[in-house]
């Protein structure tokens, strides 16, 4: 496999794991805009344990999930008292605090970052992504998964139906934090270097976009969202220069010209985001859509009215 494709699979796999981490919180109705913080916790845990303590890769990857999940669990109790936009800001602030602590910590290399001596190629993230996806599909097919979706819709009614709303929210937030941390561990070993600038606010925003635009109603959503938004910039990498040449060609310009700036890929991404919000705000994949595909002959419209 070429380096290009193995690079894409690695990035895609890490993004899928990361997206599922955020999805588990979003599925209960809690927008987590602190994704980068939890990923940084996992990445630095893996990097430090590998570089300073000489732990083997399987142990550092496990530790990345446990550290981020544990901190996520402790953090969930106060933060989940917040609702709506305040919760979003609270989680966002958490990610900033994590970044602030890391950049001021000598043991973690501060602004210099940490090199990671052990390398993993694309197989490990790919297997991890498949495993995490299967786990999330399983989780959402259980009664707990049903309760999670119900809590998303109406927490007051869920409480009266006997659901421990707080337990569901804290458990899913912490589990999601563990997955985000695991994605960070995979990142650390796949790129063999961690620096705090990687785990910035736009990373948190992007991963939340993967989930919201992919659709938070079913476990298909984050998979579709992460795949779409990881592969779209790669697709645009080739089509944008072609588009520019043909546009310029219309006005009689030809010959060699510089390819469009890298940032144009993100302009396209922004346009797609706005269009999605306008035309399909519930995300690419909805529960009704999955129902229709899995039971193609069973009408979802009621006949007997």
């Amino acid at each position: 496999m070429s380096g290009y494709w193995s690079g894409i699979i690695t990035l895609l796999s890490i993004n899928v794991v990361f997206a599922y981490g955020i999805y588990l919180a979003v599925a209960t109705g809690q927008l987590n805009l602190g994704g980068a913080g939890f990923q940084a916790l996992g990445a630095y845990a893996a990097a430090w344990l590998c570089a300073e303590q000489g732990w083997p890769i399987w142990a550092t990857l496990g530790a990345s999930a446990v550290v981020a999940g544990g901190i996520g669990f402790a953090f969930a109790f106060p933060i989940l008292r917040l609702k709506g936009v305040y919760l979003v800001l609270g989680t966002f602030a958490f990610a900033e605090v994590v970044a602030g602590v890391i950049i001021n910590s000598d043991a973690l290399g501060g602004a210099m970052g940490l090199p990671v001596p052990e390398y993993i190629d694309w197989h490990v993230p790919a297997i991890a992504a498949v495993g995490v996806a299967l786990f999330c599909f399983y989780l959402m097919s259980t009664r707990l998964g049903l309760a999670v979706r119900a809590v998303h819709d109406d927490d007051v009614v869920c409480d009266l139906l006997g659901v421990d709303v707080r337990l569901v929210r804290v458990a899913l937030f912490a589990l999601g934090a563990a997955l985000a941390g695991f994605a960070g561990g995979l990142y650390a070993h796949a790129y063999t270097y961690v620096e705090v600038q990687t785990f910035n606010a736009s990373l948190s925003i992007y991963v939340l976009l993967y989930v919201l635009l992919g659709g938070a109603q079913t476990a298909w959503g984050p998979l579709a969202g992460a795949a779409f938004f990881t592969l779209l910039p790669e697709l645009l990498r080739n089509t944008l220069p072609a588009l520019k040449s043909s546009l310029y060609g219309l006005f009689g310009a030809d010959g060699s010209m510089s390819p469009p700036d890298e940032s144009w890929r993100f302009v396209a991404l922004g346009v797609v985001t706005v269009l999605m919000m306008v035309f399909r705000s519930e995300g690419l994949i909805t529960r009704t859509m999955v129902e229709r595909i899995s039971h193609p002959f069973r009408s979802t419209k009621s006949e007997a009215l």
Partner: peptide
Amino acid sequence: MPHLSVVENVMMG
């Protein structure tokens, strides 16, 4: 629950 199907709503009961 608006995003749950008919039968899923009943199952929550």
